[in-house]
Simulated assay, not measured.
Amino acid sequence: MPPAKKRTRTYDPARIRTAVLAQLGNVRQAVRTLTPEQLALPTRLADWSVRELVAHIGMAVTAIGRSLDLPEPARPDASLLDWPFATSANSSAIDESTRRLARDHPDLDAYLADAERGLIRQLDAHPGTRLLATNAGALPLADYLVTRTVELVVHTDDLNAALPGLDIPCDRQALATATRLLADALAAKAPGGSTEVRVPPFAVVQCVEGPRHTRGTPPNVVETDPLTWIRLATGRVAWRDAVQDAKVSASGERADLAGLLPIMA
């Protein structure tokens, strides 16, 4: 008998909307306290400053509006799990746009406030089934909104890394969604059932070709916390460093994920 086909994870649109707006609010609250000197500090993202990182967060939110301004695609031709693998294709354009936005919006709190108001209007005006032309292909608005949790959580962590002590909190639902989406992307990248990846309390996926376990403790297990997983999946932390620092536990001959990470960059 062939193995059962895995069901695609679904997300509650109302909870995702609440999570996106909550995390954007967390970022806004922190950004309005930053001094010019702090905004000029470097980040771990190439040569972006904190100012440019904040501008990019706003750009991630306004991406929905830019897609809504385009003609609606005739039909969906991508899935939610295509998105993590498509993010690097437009890196040079994203860098150029980010720098321009940082120059054009000296008041970053006002910029983020405008982005927030615009997002609320757009979500009120359009159903979740409305198709958007995205970098991954044509996706429903509800699915694309899920990807915004990844953008917001990842870049919140980038801000916290650039400014020790800032400690912007992660909304629990936003963190859970980002964790699950990136875990599912790993399972899509390396389908199989020989390795179990656990990211408590939010996600458990099986991946990697090889003997499939059916009961009891699987022979190959990887376990880590949500933020470490997100850092691994986005290239902020190297697999070897996370293992050496005891941020990841990995047991079994198929538990080395170094060749599969990062998932997106």
Rank of each mutant, 00 (worst) to 15 (best):
Gly193Ser: 06
Arg7Asn: 10
Leu81Ser: 00
His213Met: 03
His105Tyr: 13
Gly25Ala: 15
Gly128Trp: 07
Arg212Ala: 06
His105Cys: 08
Arg121His: 12
Thr179Pro: 11
Pro71Lys: 07
Val154Pro: 01
Val150Cys: 12
Pro218Gly: 14
Lys6Gln: 13
Val153Ser: 05
Leu41Tyr: 09
Ala55Gly: 13
Ala22Thr: 05
Ala250His: 09
Glu52Gln: 12
Ala255Asn: 06
Thr8Tyr: 04
Met264Gln: 11
Glu96Tyr: 13
Pro84Lys: 04
Asp256Met: 02
Ala190Arg: 02
Gly58Met: 01
Arg100Phe: 14
Pro169Met: 04
Val146Ser: 00
Tyr111Asn: 09
Ala203Cys: 05
Leu41Phe: 09
Ala188Pro: 03
Asp12Met: 02
Ala4Ser: 15
Ala133His: 09
Lys189Phe: 09
Arg198Glu: 10
Thr129Gln: 15
Asp12Lys: 03
Leu45Trp: 04
Asp12Pro: 03
Asn220Glu: 02
Leu21Ile: 05
Pro71His: 09
Leu163Asp: 02
Ala86Cys: 13
Ala4Pro: 15
Ala161Ser: 03
Ser92Thr: 04
Leu123Val: 14
Ala14Gly: 14
Asp69Glu: 06
Leu227Pro: 00
Cys207Val: 14
Ser97Pro: 01
Leu166Glu: 01
Leu70Asn: 08
Pro262Gly: 04
Pro169Gly: 04
Leu41Ser: 14
Asp245Met: 12
Gly193Ile: 04
Met264Thr: 15
Gln122Glu: 15
Val50Ala: 14
Thr228Asn: 03
Gln206Thr: 15
Thr10Asn: 14
Asn26Lys: 09
Pro226Asp: 11
Asn135Ala: 13
Val208Ser: 00
His56Val: 04
Trp239Pro: 01
Ala233Asp: 02
Ser49Gly: 06
Thr147Trp: 08
Arg117Phe: 13
Asn220Lys: 03
Arg240Asn: 11
Val237Phe: 00
Gln122Tyr: 10
Asp158His: 04
Glu253Arg: 02
Arg254Lys: 08
Glu253Trp: 01
Arg32Lys: 11
Leu257Lys: 14
Asp184Ile: 15
Gly252His: 13
Arg99Met: 01
Leu24Ser: 10
Glu209Asp: 12
Ala89Asn: 06
Asp143Ser: 07
Trp48Val: 09
Leu260Gln: 08
Pro169Leu: 03
Arg28Trp: 02
Asn90Arg: 13
His155Val: 05
Asp95Gly: 10
Arg215Val: 10
Leu24Trp: 01
Ser67Leu: 13
Met59Lys: 01
Cys170Pro: 01
Ala30Ser: 11
Asp124Ala: 09
Trp239Asn: 02
Ala176Tyr: 08
Lys5Met: 14
Thr62His: 03
Asn90Phe: 13
Ala174Trp: 05
Gly216Asp: 07
Gly235Lys: 10
Gln23Thr: 12
Leu257Gln: 11
Arg66His: 13
Arg117Gly: 15
Glu96Arg: 07
Asp77Phe: 13
Ala30Thr: 08
Leu166Met: 11
Thr98Asp: 03
Asp241Leu: 05
Gln173Leu: 03
Ala40Trp: 01
Ala14Phe: 13
Pro76Thr: 00
Ile120Val: 07
Ser249Ala: 12
Leu34Ala: 02
Leu45Met: 06
Val248His: 08
His155Cys: 04
Lys247Tyr: 03
Leu182Met: 07
Asp107Lys: 01
Arg236Ser: 02
Arg148Ile: 08
Ala19Asn: 11
Ala250Tyr: 05
Leu108Met: 04
Ala246Gly: 11
Leu139Met: 00
His213Ile: 04
Arg32Ala: 12
Arg17Leu: 05
Leu112Ala: 08
Ala142Asp: 05
Val248Gln: 07
Ala255His: 07
